[in-house]
């Protein structure tokens, strides 16, 4: 132990060090948007649970009448947008933590983001079709 020379593998290029650019660019934005959408989702989710209780077992006509109220439609659209933005950021962190090969990680994150965008659009278009 005494004579052994210790070393650390520096995981950063010398150019990156000289420029002083750390990860606190898009990484901070990711973190901040996750928090911002979380805060927005607190009231939206409580309202959504209340709405589900109101709409349980509703007929199609009752659903259309409920969606016809612009306040309901706007809150539902806000909920869909905030939820999918939050989910897509959250699942990215999860995938990046557990998938260790570069190609797989990149591919799974891109596929997940594509699916989240398609689901969000389906939700938005369906809600607009019902409410307008």
């Amino acid at each position: 132990m005494a004579n052994e020379t210790l070393h650390i593998d520096i995981m950063r290029s010398q150019l990156g060090r000289a420029r002083g650019l750390g990860a606190a660019k898009s990484g901070l934005h990711h973190w901040w948007m996750q928090r911002l959408t979380a805060v927005a989702l607190v009231p939206l989710t409580l309202w959504f649970i209340y709405s589900v209780l109101v709409l349980q077992g509703a007929t199609h006509a009752a659903l259309i009448a409920w969606m016809g109220n612009p306040f309901h439609l706007v809150l539902l659209l806000a909920l869909i947008v905030a939820t999918f933005h939050h989910v897509q950021l959250g699942l990215q962190s999860v995938l990046e933590d557990y998938i260790h090969t570069e190609t797989c990680r990149l591919a799974s994150v891109l596929v997940m983001k594509g699916l989240a965008a398609l689901l969000a659009l389906t939700g938005v278009v369906s809600a607009l079709k019902l409410g307008l």
Binding site: I64, V87, L119, G123, V125, S126, A127, K129, L130
Partner: peptide, 16 residues
Amino acid sequence: LAAGTLFLVCWLAAGA
């Protein structure tokens, strides 16, 4: 919950 959004979207798409 992310998996649960599938049901929410199915419910809305079915309504539409």
